[in-house]
Measured scan of single mutants.
Amino acid sequence: KYFGTAKARYDFCARDRSELSLKEGDIIKILNKKGQQGWWRGEIYGRVGWFPANYVEEDYS
């Protein structure tokens, strides 16, 4: 189950295995919004990890 999707506004390079690298334009499935302050958990291309919420724009459609 996921909470919708978000589109990456910027590139983000994961610093460890718990984080999710993003490329601008990627569409991420949002799995959890209750991580550390400002971090969401998501899935993209079969990978799961945490990413900074301010790097994405949530899709409300």
Rank of each mutant, 00 (worst) to 15 (best):
K1P: 02
K1R: 04
K1L: 10
K1M: 08
K1F: 11
Y2S: 13
Y2L: 08
Y2W: 07
Y2K: 07
F3K: 12
F3H: 06
F3L: 14
F3I: 15
G4I: 09
G4P: 14
G4Y: 10
G4D: 12
G4K: 09
G4N: 11
G4A: 11
T5W: 10
A6G: 06
A6H: 03
A6P: 02
A6Q: 04
K7I: 09
K7D: 02
A8W: 00
A8L: 03
A8T: 03
R9W: 03
R9A: 08
R9V: 11
Y10E: 11
Y10Q: 15
D11K: 07
D11A: 12
D11V: 04
D11Q: 07
F12T: 00
F12V: 02
F12M: 02
F12A: 05
F12K: 00
C13N: 15
C13G: 08
C13M: 11
A14E: 01
A14W: 04
A14T: 05
A14D: 00
A14I: 01
R15T: 10
D16Y: 06
D16Q: 12
D16M: 05
D16W: 04
R17W: 09
R17A: 15
R17Q: 13
S18N: 14
E19Y: 03
E19C: 05
L20W: 01
L20T: 04
S21F: 04
S21V: 01
S21Q: 04
S21L: 04
S21T: 08
K23S: 11
K23P: 01
E24K: 13
E24P: 12
E24N: 11
E24W: 01
E24T: 14
G25L: 01
D26R: 00
I27P: 05
I27W: 08
I27L: 10
I27Q: 09
I27S: 08
I28Y: 04
K29G: 08
I30E: 01
I30F: 02
L31D: 06
N32I: 07
N32A: 13
K33M: 02
K33H: 03
K33Q: 05
K34V: 12
K34I: 06
G35H: 06
G35I: 07
G35E: 11
G35M: 07
G35C: 11
Q36S: 10
Q36M: 15
Q36L: 13
Q37A: 13
Q37T: 11
Q37L: 12
G38M: 02
G38Y: 03
G38L: 05
W40F: 08
W40H: 02
R41N: 07
G42S: 02
G42N: 03
G42R: 06
G42D: 07
E43G: 03
E43D: 05
E43T: 07
I44Q: 05
Y45S: 15
Y45K: 15
Y45M: 15
Y45E: 15
G46C: 02
G46Y: 00
G46L: 04
G46A: 03
R47P: 01
R47S: 08
R47K: 13
R47Y: 05
V48F: 10
V48M: 08
V48K: 13
G49M: 01
G49E: 01
G49F: 01
W50N: 07
W50I: 03
P52W: 00
P52D: 01
P52A: 01
A53G: 06
A53Y: 07
N54E: 14
Y55P: 01
Y55Q: 06
V56P: 03
E57G: 06
E57V: 14
D59I: 12
D59P: 07
D59E: 13
Y60E: 14
Y60M: 14
Y60L: 15
Y60N: 10
S61L: 12
S61P: 15
S61D: 10
